[in-house]
């Protein structure tokens, strides 16, 4: 790695907040590093300070309670979710998406927080968090605020995080417990690939929700489909909510076609 930076490993939230406010323009948080380190290596990011968020006291905490639902600290990895019995049983949708993300080694390091802050349109965790009504707890030296994931993504690789703020926790409401779903992700090779397009369908009681990755500047939640809609009607509604483009991984037409195929296939699974 050619680019040089200083490494900070704050041991308390207060210490991290003060480092963040000192380095608003030249600092980056390091979680699993699976986005940040390749970006530094490629010269896309040149932080002067890298602040490791994994040494904070509560960072690795993944805890479930009736009152607060599921709470994930900044350092909770994708594989931590897959290994957690409570997550598998109460929030299987998180695992369905986690399982589609990258390779086993990457999942051992990659965090859920890093995945959403990275705000890639092809984020595999965003669809699950959107469908489950999860919220992000953001903290800075000035205090804390909570933002639902429906309002968290602001554009390609952009979020509502302000300079000096970090994502401290992700909360999945207890009310979403038991929601079930399937995620179909189109990719060139099994495991280990960013999606060409991904469609998640989640059922909870009478409600059906879809979320689509890699088909718009941000991951998209679609709540307009009802259980009574025909498969074609449902596909039309989902397609109306997205705006895929053509890029190295696929054309706009291919993406649109496959979204329709996936919506029909997901509905057929439950019929």
């Amino acid at each position: 790695m050619l680019h040089e930076f200083k490494y900070l490993a704050p041991r308390s939230v207060a210490e991290l907040c003060s480092a963040l406010s000192d380095h608003r323009d030249d600092g980056k948080i390091l979680a699993g590093g699976t986005d940040l380190i390749p970006n530094i290596r490629n010269g896309l990011m040149k932080p002067a300070f890298v602040m490791d968020a994994k040494r904070l006291p509560e960072a690795a905490r993944l805890a479930w309670s009736e009152k607060d639902g599921l709470s994930m600290g900044t350092a909770v990895t994708i594989n931590d979710l897959l290994r957690s019995k409570e997550t598998r049983e109460l929030f299987p949708v998180l695992c369905v998406c986690a399982h589609e993300l990258a390779s086993h080694q990457v999942r051992n390091r990659a965090t859920v927080a890093g995945n959403v802050v990275n705000a890639s349109p092809c984020s595999d965790m965003a669809p699950a968090l959107l469908c489950l009504g999860a919220r992000a707890v953001l903290r800075s030296a000035g205090g804390e605020r909570t933002v639902p994931f429906g309002e968290f993504f602001a554009g390609v690789k952009k979020t509502v995080l302000k300079p000096g703020e970090f994502l401290e926790r992700i909360l999945v409401p207890a009310a979403s417990r038991g929601a079930r779903g399937s995620y179909l992700k189109l990719k060139r090779i099994a495991g280990h690939d960013l999606g060409i397009v991904g469609v998640l369908m989640v059922r909870h009681g009478d409600s059906i929700r879809f979320a689509v990755s890699s088909a718009a500047p941000t991951p998209v939640l679609v709540e307009s489909v009802s259980a009574k809609d025909s498969p074609d009607e449902a596909a039309r509604k989902v397609l109306a909510a997205v705006s895929p483009i053509s890029d190295v991984r696929g054309t706009k037409e291919y993406r649109e076609h496959m979204i329709g195929v996936y919506v029909r296939r997901l509905l057929a699974e439950v019929k």
Binding site: V50, S103, Q105, N108
Partner: peptide, 23 residues
């Protein structure tokens, strides 16, 4: 050197990781 190939895999505290993406 960027997480794709796994040639750099080592076991860090009991878990396989890509050493090219760990400081």
């Amino acid at each position: 050197g960027m997480g794709e190939c796994g040639a750099c895999t080592v076991i860090l505290d009991g878990r396989a990781v890509n050493a090219c993406m760990v400081l």
